[in-house]
Design a protein around this nucleic acid. Structure first.
Length: 968
RNA sequence: GGGACAGUGGCGGAAUGGUAUACGCUCGACACUUAAAAUGUCGUCUGGGAAACCGGGUGCGGGUUCGAGUCCCGCCUGUCCCACCA
């Protein structure tokens, strides 16, 4: 997940540190303690009886790239290690694991270039990462190291896929999807950035393909609401809110004018409900349709409302029709290719489909009513966030791909419409969403009726309306929407003002007021008003505020069955299919008879085949098969299987899963990484989860972090988790930039190699420097001179210790005791708040103080060492041992400050005259105002400023400030 | 176009509304050394002054307050995110 590029050869940027006499031998010390920690399994944890002391500290696991660990990895690893070590010293049972997000494109693309199998390069890279992390002295629980590319891991990724599949959370559908020509695979919406592939930058095109999706939109509302309960950076939360994109408004049905004219809706006697597929068939058929449905008291001549079933409880109207015939007919007697009806391959397939719709009790003998109807008058359903402006809707616009277009277009406009639709389908996502692009569109020849005022309004198609958002159709209110305004001006469509600003104060508002004052409400105005205001020209809404008008309009729409309140989300379902090799195979078998069949649990994992010749795949720089299939189809061993249901020859699903599926549940696996019976034991999940602190880059705001939350919600609902939110607290570490202030990259040659830093200055110095650079969340440029600086500090600590050991025993120095207790307080709270830089500066202050003292008390120094230990663990252990201890410093308790010792007897305090500091006095922080006043007024510098002036007021904040306000 | 965050010395940065620039780097002087490195000590926002001290100073302009880097309003600049989402 954390993927960094780096160049090991950039030595010219580094300042060589000369290890001379006053310097300790970091290489020897660090090797020694790393070996000891490995031997006692320092970071190893087990569940305890009580959950009270359990903490789960997690960093986003790295993608094991061939170029090795990056200084950016070190930052989050050091941070989490410091916190884990401190909390262990405070008696906590801390789970702090590490693993590898090992599937992904780079290894596969490398394989295509070189022929080396991704499993091999990945294995090597993981070994390298492991060794590099060991050399940093990180106290992970190494017994829990996992790799998502390990069959023991992806077995459970596949198992979870099937769990989702069986519970309706994983499904297959044909829809326009994002296709990357560079990577030769489909992409999730989240992986398309500004119309281009997030990974390779190639312009993404839309393709109509059948793919696997996860039903994340089912959780849109809860994923949005859940954000309020978690301690995450506001920035990330707002990005997720944006991405989910909740819009509250209404759906409004516009009746398309039929040959017979309008008014049919009022006569609807009852409603007939259809599946979405049948809805589509009614539209794509001609004007006469036949269809069967549940029994209703309907007769020839009745007008009925046709509705789509969106779910068990949700429906929406799509048309009106007149019944021309009613027959009773057994399912067995319905022809398989009944006109206006779904076509079935076999009687069994028909029965199954009916059972899915009407329940298992349906048999071939069940009698159904077959209705014939004519004069299907379609409704165009639009979604709007401004139902209050319905009176100002002067035309409708459909997306070019809208299902109704074919049906409503008049013959004289058909060729023009077809040309436009074909042109739109050829455009890339980028072209269609390009900024400041001039809007284009074509009139369909059809008219709809504005239900508010009965006016006939033209229906257009235009590619500024997106098929995948809302209903793929809009009511255009050019006077109050910038896009509609631009379009209306270009095509000379009417513009009708229906909202005026609440306060007329801007020039624009005046323009509107003038246009409103004119006789005709339909005229060209110079600008549009998109803000909220007061309704005008809107009959029963006139005079209402936008908010009130919305409410009243929705109530009116619902009462008249014309529309309803509706909330829409921008979030799309998560497309998880990838036409690539190096990922977890989707555990599905395709059978000609039985359709998609899940692989039986006992057959998991579906392992990746080894007989794939990567060098033969080639074809493009970044690999992938240009055919739109995964390289897995080339494997004989993999591709041809038997159907688990009927036993006939079948084909294995050849797509793999998006690697974000792997990383959506890895934190659960850490709690029980070797379990062969479940993805993790529930009791272990319950003990450790949810994660108390999660550290990682902000680039995952709407990808990994949203997907992982979805997984947690889904698994919670399925009974596997006792919580919904997986990560209670999230912190983002900032980017570490090159010494030139630019993002580190191979091409710029400004990459810093952590290995060189470790060998030159030591792991302790590297860790400490990265923590000292600045606030964890900020982007900061690298400066190797700074590493030298913290190394100097560590040498001072070392030399100080030599003095403590060699010196004669000394009584405690009161000043030192006070300093160390203040430092315990500050460092503890700083570390708790992840303010490593200020914690370290406090340690430096202590060392500077001790270094200039003639003697240091051993016990005081030992307290200091304990505070240093999480930050510079190797040196702290070494010095602790040198001081005569035989057990680890990490077995010690974290120091606790004595609150009576952190109060100063005397402090220097500023004295202000009219807010400007004019002098300084020394006094006890507990001194009363009279004492302070006496001292302040006796101060020579202060006296100069108050001499002869009238004193208006005195503000005394003990220990902080003494301010004298005088009349000037 | 919309949103989020930020702007403090030569540099990284510090500061519950209370002595702005802690800590580190850099640079300079001195000590140690034949010398250099390393180490140590002192200095290092700016103008004036030998100094004490005085004036100015946290992107710009206002405001609240005894007191503002910090809070409020308006702007400028930068970074990131979203972007024809109805």
């Amino acid at each position: 997940m954390e993927d960094y590029q780096q160049n090991p050869v950039a030595s010219s940027l580094f300042v060589r540190y000369d290890p001379f006499t006053m310097s300790y031998n970091h290489q020897e010390i660090e090797k020694k303690w790393q070996a000891k920690w490995a031997a006692n399994r320092a970071g190893h944890v087990d569940e305890a009886a009580s959950r009270d002391n359990a903490l789960y500290y997690l960093i986003m696991f790295p993608y094991p790239s061939g170029s090795g660990l990056h200084v950016g990895h070190v930052e989050s690893q050091a941070a989490i290690d410091i916190l884990a070590r401190m909390e262990r010293m405070r008696g906590k049972n801390v789970l702090c694991p590490i693993g590898y997000d090992a599937f992904g494109l780079p290894a596969e693309n490398y394989a295509i270039k070189t022929g080396v199998h991704p499993a091999e390069t990945t294995k090597k890279a993981i070994e390298n990462f492991h060794n590099q992390m060991q050399s940093l002295g990180l106290s992970f629980d190494w017994s829990r190291e996992i790799s998502t590319a390990d069959p023991e891991y992806y077995k459970w990724t596949q198992w979870l896929f099937l769990l989702f599949y069986k519970n309706g959370l994983a499904y297959r559908k044909k829809s326009p999807v994002n296709w990357c020509e560079g990577c030769h695979t489909v992409l999730a919406n989240e992986q398309v950035v500004a119309g281009a592939c997030e990974r390779c930058g190639t312009v993404v095109v839309q393709k109509e393909l059948e793919q696997w999706f996860f039903h994340i939109t089912k959780y849109a509302d809860r994923l949005l609401a859940g954000l309020d309960s978690i301690d995450w950076p506001e920035k990330i939360k707002s990005m997720q809110r944006n991405w989910i994109g909740k819009s509250v408004g209404a759906e409004i049905n516009f009746l398309v004018m039929s040959d017979e004219g309008s008014g049919i809706s009022d006569q609807a006697k009852d409603s007939l409900k259809f599946t979405p597929e049948l809805t589509e068939l009614i539209y794509s058929g001609k004007k006469t349709n036949t269809i069967r449905l549940e029994k209703k008291n309907l007769q020839v001549g009745d007008t009925v409302r046709l509705m789509t079933r969106l779910s068990a409880t949700e429906t929406h109207s799509f048309a009106f029709a007149k019944i021309t015939g009613v027959d009773l007919i057994k399912l067995n007697d319905i022809s398989l290719d009944l006109k206006g009806h779904e076509r079935y391959e076999s009687r069994e397939a028909m029965l199954k489909s009916y059972q899915d719709f009407y329940g298992a009790t349906v048999s071939l003998e069940t009698e159904f009513v077959l209705y014939h109807f004519a004069n299907v008058t379609p409704l165009i359903t639009v979604f709007t966030t401004r139902p209050d402006t319905l009176f100002g809707a002067t035309y409708l616009v459909l997306a070019p791909e809208h299902a109704l277009v074919d049906q409503i277009v008049t013959d004289e406009h058909r060729s023009e419409i077809d040309t436009y639709r074909i042109a739109a389908s050829k455009k890339s996502v980028l072209e269609r969403t390009e900024l400041q692009k001039e809007k284009t569109g074509v009139f369909t020849g059809a008219y709809a009726i504005n239900p508010a005022n009965g006016e006939q309004i033209p229906v257009w198609i235009a590619d500024y309306v997106i098929t995948t958002y809302g209903t793929g159709a809009i009511m255009a209110v050019p006077a109050h929407d910038a896009r509609d305004f631009e379009f209306a001006k270009k095509y000379e469509l009417p513009i009708k003002v229906v909202v005026k600003p609440a306060v007329l104060q801007t020039l624009m508002s005046e323009t509107l007021a003038v246009s409103h004052g004119a006789q005709s409400s339909v005229e060209i105005v110079s600008d549009c008003f998109t803000e909220q205001g007061i309704a005008i020209n809107s009959a029963f809404l006139d005079g209402l505020s936008t908010a009130d008008a919305k409410q009243k309009m929705i109530a009116w729409l619902e009462e008249k069955h014309i529309g309803n309140a509706k909330t829409t989300f921008r979030l799309r379902d998560w497309l998880v299919s990838r036409q690539r090799y190096w990922g977890a195979p989707i555990p599905i078998i395709w059978c000609e008879n039985c359709g998609a069949q899940p692989v039986e649990e006992a057959q998991l994992p579906v392992e990746l085949p080894t007989d794939v010749d990567f060098s033969a795949i080639g074809g493009s720089a970044s690999g992938g098969k240009p055919t739109g299939e995964s390289p897995l189809v080339d494997s004989n061993t993999f591709h041809n299987v038997k159907c688990p249901t009927c036993g006939k020859a079948a084909r294995r699903e050849s797509d793999t899963m998006d690697t974000f599926v792997d990383s959506s549940w890895y934190y659960l696996r850490y709690t029980d990484p070797h379990n062969t019976n479940a993805f993790a034991d529930k009791s272990k999940i319950d003990y450790w989860c949810p994660v108390d602190l999660y550290l990682g880059g902000a680039e995952h705001a709407v990808m990994h972090l949203l997907y992982a939350r979805f997984f947690a919600y889904a698994l919670h609902d399925l009974g596997y988790l006792g919580f919904e939110e997986p990560f209670l607290k999230l912190k983002n570490q900032g980017l570490i930039l090159g010494p030139d202030g630019d993002k580190m990259s191979k091409s710029k040659g400004n990459v810093v190699n952590p290995d060189e830093m470790v060998s030159e200055y030591g792991a302790d110095a590297l860790r400490l420097y990265e923590m000292f650079m600045g606030p964890l969340e900020d982007a900061k440029p690298w400066d190797t001179k700074g590493v030298v600086g913290v190394r100097r500090f560590l040498d001072k600590v070392h030399n100080l210790c030599i003095r403590v050991i060699g010196g004669v025993p000394r009584p405690r120095d009161d000043a030192h005791t006070k300093l160390i207790h203040k430092s315990i307080k500050k460092i503890t709270s700083d570390l708790e708040e992840l303010k490593f830089n200020t914690a370290i500066s406090q340690l430096m202050i202590v060392v500077n103080e001790f270094s200039s003292a003639s003697s240091i008390n051993k016990e005081t120094f030992e307290t200091f060492l304990k505070l240093l230990a999480p930050l510079a663990p190797h040196l702290a252990e070494e010095l602790w041992e040198k001081l005569g201890h035989t057990t680890s410093i990490f077995a010690e308790s974290w120091p606790v400050f004595d609150s009576t010792l952190i109060v100063d007897d005397v402090v220097d305090m500023g004295v202000q005259v009219n807010g400007k500091v004019r002098g300084t006095i020394s006094l006890a922080p507990s001194a009363d105002e009279a004492t302070a006043k006496e001292l302040a007024f006796a101060n020579v510098n202060v006296m100069k400023w108050i001499d002869g002036k009238e004193i208006m007021k005195i503000v005394y904040v003990p220990g902080k400030i003494f301010n004298i306000v005088v009349k000037e």
